[in-house]
Design a protein around this nucleic acid. Sequence first.
DNA 1: ATGATCTCCTGAGCGC
DNA 2: TGCGCTCAGGAGATCA
Length: 270
Amino acid sequence: MPELPEVETIRRGLAKQLKGRRIDGVDWRGAKLRSGSPTPLEQMEGRVVEAVDRHGKYLHWHLSGGYSVLVHLGMTGKLLFAEAGEAERSHTHLVLSLDDEKQLRFSDPRRFGCVKLFAPGTPLVDLAHFGKDALDPKLTAPEFADAMRASRAPIKAFLLDQTQVAGVGNIYAAEALWRTGISPRRRGASVPRAKALKLLSHVRDVLRDSIASGGTSFNDYVDHIGQPGKYVAKLAVYDREGQPCPRCATAIRRISQANRSTFYCPTCQT
DNA sequence: ATGATCTCCTGAGCGC
DNA sequence: TGCGCTCAGGAGATCA
């Protein structure tokens, strides 16, 4: 569910409310999550959260003593602050008790998410094969266009491939391709150079616009204090099958690519 | 080695 | 009201 803008919204909230806090208690019941932690999560106890970072859709907490925590929200993961006595959401897998009497809780009904603790000096294997973050200024338009030219997959699949660029998911891939006027079916290698060079800036624009609205919420995405994102009202094509394209009024079409829905305008995306 | 397809889960929404 | 079906912001595994 959450893509880069939703994860970034949560990161900002955590940077305000979690940074500087000491983790006094760890209640872990996430044995049924898909992947376990290399180091037992109980070893977070007594450590202070020094910084909250993000790479693609992963949150990276820097703990005192050189420990790292990676959190991925999968499709339905949530990180929410709560008071100690407050009712718990169902499918709560982790409760951290903080030194300000608050709790930070991780819940995830579909269990596609993960929370992992890495000891000092341990490589963050989940990120090792990832490409640069989509908003990382070190990623340049020519580098991005070169990678695109080397890809024979549909451009939509290229954008979703986290080893190419990290952070773009199904919503913003569709929106960025609409902004650039590229058909999602087109092979990366066949995109004209001029459009290939523009695509990265459109990816970044749509991600930044969404961050400014607190992300996109359909059913269930909420940030660290339970607020939904407002970007859904600004989506041009995603989840708008049959509705008019904001640019040319053609009915938005929905197709299936790699078992996932793709939305696009058949007139202005070629 | 790349690209397409399958798979892990629960819950919401729909048509009947 | 309820049943069965489809679909969902991800991404690793597996198949061709």
